[in-house]
Nucleic acid binder design. Structure first.
Lengths: 333, 333
DNA sequence: TTGTATGCGTTATCAG
DNA sequence: CTGATAACGCATACAA
């Protein structure tokens, strides 16, 4: 392992010149530049970035905290973050927390100990289990909700859910079931608010018995849907608060002999890639994962560099995508 | 930002003692230990890991190279790697290469410049675009094939594909179409070899016209399946070399009025979580993603620590999972 | 068990 | 434009 001194000796210049040749080439004469570069090739020098980071007290790394990297929506956002980070010369430390607060803290600690320069949070912070992110560390939230504080980029969950409900109502549905995420989850809160808004606007009374609680997994969708199948008066439409639960729910519905969308319409949320390929393809809300990741990374970079933020909150548009899982309700038999 | 010297002063001991108290507590008296710890609390000290890494010439980070983090099988493996890494005190640098060799090199460079201690490759190395991983850097391949060299953990792709074909043949299928990945992809090569083996064992002649080339995406599965629908004599079974393509293919088949599995059986490979939730649920091969990630990380750790490897190759068992997408062939009409 | 002193590889300051 | 040298924060060899 050769170091900067070896290069200096080989090139017949000082270490300072070598260092400058690499970081500020414009401050070095062409002659020295040439000598340095051929010396580098000759001794096979690779700068020790660890030393550089240490010296400059910056790690050029950010940690991305995600509850579950396996979730396709999250992985899309992360891919986008990684892309942007790479462009800007930053590394991405993957922090799959599995929802465990302890793991989250371990990663926060990594930035306290200078191993990373900042954090991107990929989950809505829930009231109870709010992580104590010290305010002296750069942090932006990338899937926030209306209740999220601090720098954040998000979509209008309430408005998007409202759009779905409005559409279902326009088709003629009036009895619309909902499969939610965990009750306290801010995504559940915001999207459910949109559902209620839509109902109210159409003069439909909110019926709590049409709510089933899931946890955003396919299995929970499958399970929660049973509750509706057991009803005497099955809803004509099912609003699922994410795509996974919609996919799981459809399996249960079909198993009970219900056809989608002829007997019951189903909608999702997120527009993961499978939404287009299920049977029937899923009517859902497209979250701009790519743009969310990019913006979050850019925001974090400004925070790290100490530049002022143009805005603390960035709300991106979400597109309502109509596919084959929704139709007009069946006539009462 | 307080440093080790501040702590030493506060505790009334030397910096060496503080350092030891943190890294080798057993070499320090209980009295000093107490003094040090209360001093740490008092000044709010956080060790500078960047300095520690620099000094010990180890970054305690590994980079994971993956073609596409969005692929659910890969993300499962990565989650497992991250889990193991975290346990061992290592960080995971995410390197989503998108198949671009240039990006891969950038990440390899990160370990050359000491920003990471080793690499886990999550793709089969293709003959042509083989990355030049210098042999002095620790590297293990986590989704290798028979042609993969170096430390690796993989499943028996050929044997697993063979098991699927044997099963289809046992059901009575003799005309079995295949949707492959790109021709040169080692996964394609190995799995296709298994297909041919199965055919040969049953005395069925290999028919090249039953091969359609995809690229492991759902879209390519959807597209490639058209080729079979256009045939006069449609195959009674379709072996897809991964789940995504199977899911895409099923959409096309249904669109053409073919029922799965009554008119045509379909199989996948990988057993991603959606395989269980498509309609019909997919008969496939379960890859032990969790175990693959764990083993790969353990292997890499040994390499990094300079310990000898028990074995250079670890071949894990893959389970054949029979679901609802396969059945006996329909009688000729 | 503890303290002193040195060096890890780089960048930055300051003279030349 | 270039060179000598002092940090950066920590770990460790060596001496006590």
């Amino acid at each position: 392992m050769s170091n900067i001194r070896d290069v200096a000796r080989e090139a017949g210049v000082s270490v300072a010149t070598v260092s400058r040749a690499l970081s500020n080439p414009e401050k070095v004469s062409q002659a020295s530049l040439n000598k340095v570069h051929s010396a580098i090739d000759k001794v096979g020098y690779r700068p020790n970035m660890l030393a550089r980071s240490f010296r400059s007290a910056k790690s050029y790394a950010v940690v991305v905290l995600v509850p579950d990297i396996t979730n396709p929506f999250f992985s899309q956002v992360i891919r986008s973050i990684e892309d942007r980070a790479q462009q800007k010369g930053y590394a991405v430390l993957l922090g799959d927390t599995r929802g465990v607060i302890e793991r989250e803290k371990e990663y926060i600690r990594r930035v306290e100990t200078r191993l990373a320069d900042g954090v991107i949070q990929l989950r809505p912070d829930e009231p109870g289990k709010h992580t104590e992110v010290p305010d002296d560390i750069a942090c932006v939230n990338a899937c926030g909700c209306e209740s999220t504080t601090g720098p954040r980029v998000r979509i209008d969950n309430r408005g998007a859910a409202r759009a779905v409900v409005d559409y279902l109502i326009s088709l003629g549905h009036r009895r619309i079931g909902v499969i939610t995420g965990l009750k306290d989850n801010p995504h559940t809160v915001d999207r459910l608010a949109g559902y209620k808004e839509g109902l109210a606007a159409a003069g439909i009374e909110f019926d709590p018995s049409l709510l089933a609680e899931g946890d955003f997994t396919m299995w929970s969708g499958l399970n929660s849907a049973k509750q509706f199948c057991a009803m005497d008066d099955i809803p004509t439409a099912l609003l699922c608060l994410n795509d996974e639960m919609a996919i799981g729910a459809m399996q249960t519905l079909k198993l009970h002999g219900l056809r989608v969308p002829e007997d019951i319409s189903v909608t999702g949320f997120d527009d993961i890639s499978y939404a287009r390929y299920c049977d029937p393809s899923l009517t859902t809300v497209n979250q701009p994962a790519e743009e969310i990741g990019k913006r979050a990374m850019d925001m974090l970079l400004r925070l790290i560099e100490g530049e002022p933020l143009a805005q603390e909150e960035s709300v991106l548009p979400a597109e309502f995508v109509i596919r084959k899982s929704t139709a007009v309700p069946r006539k009462k038999s």
